[in-house]
């Protein structure tokens, strides 16, 4: 089976990168920098963003850089396009990535299906889908 990392694929279901609640994340992504939301009161670090802190209920929070490295908690390989919009992308690998700062992301991996291993080290890679949208991915270092 040939599997080309689909760095030029264009997902049809793009997030709203202009949403004020998350615009900073997407702006940094365009510059290939990884951010997470941090509670100004207690330091809780999270993605996706929440309106208030689930730990201390503060509504004061900032977007801060986090280490773009982590390990693969687990992964799946989509062999069927369960939604028709994915039909040109199969097979593709989605990983659950535990970053070194403890934030979990579930995103596409630029890793061949037979090279993915639970526990493998990963580093953020980036997929510039459009001028406005860059999607986070992870790849082997």
């Amino acid at each position: 089976m040939t599997y080309a990392p689909t760095s030029n694929a264009t997902p049809q279901n793009l997030p709203d990168v202009a949403d004020p609640a998350t615009a900073a994340f997407w702006e940094a992504a365009r510059e290939h920098r990884l951010l997470a939301q941090r509670c100004d009161a207690c330091g809780d670090l999270r993605y996706p963003a929440t309106e208030i802190c689930p730990r201390c209920w503060s509504d004061s929070q900032s977007w801060v850089p986090i280490a773009p490295t982590g390990e693969l908690y687990s992964y799946v390989v989509y062999h069927r396009a369960l939604d028709p919009s994915m039909k040109d992308e199969i097979p593709y690998v989605v990983g659950r990535v535990l970053t070194d700062d403890g934030v979990v992301f579930t995103v596409r991996l630029d890793v061949e299906p037979d090279e993915a291993r639970v526990g493998m080290r990963l580093v953020a890679s980036w997929n510039d889908v459009t001028d406005a949208v860059t999607l986070l991915r992870f790849a082997a270092p």
Binding site: P11, M86, F105, T106, R108, L135
Partner: peptide, 10 residues
């Protein structure tokens, strides 16, 4: 897919 990072990741 939801219009989110996960949804856009398939």
């Amino acid at each position: 897919p939801t219009p989110s990072l996960e949804g856009a990741s398939g």
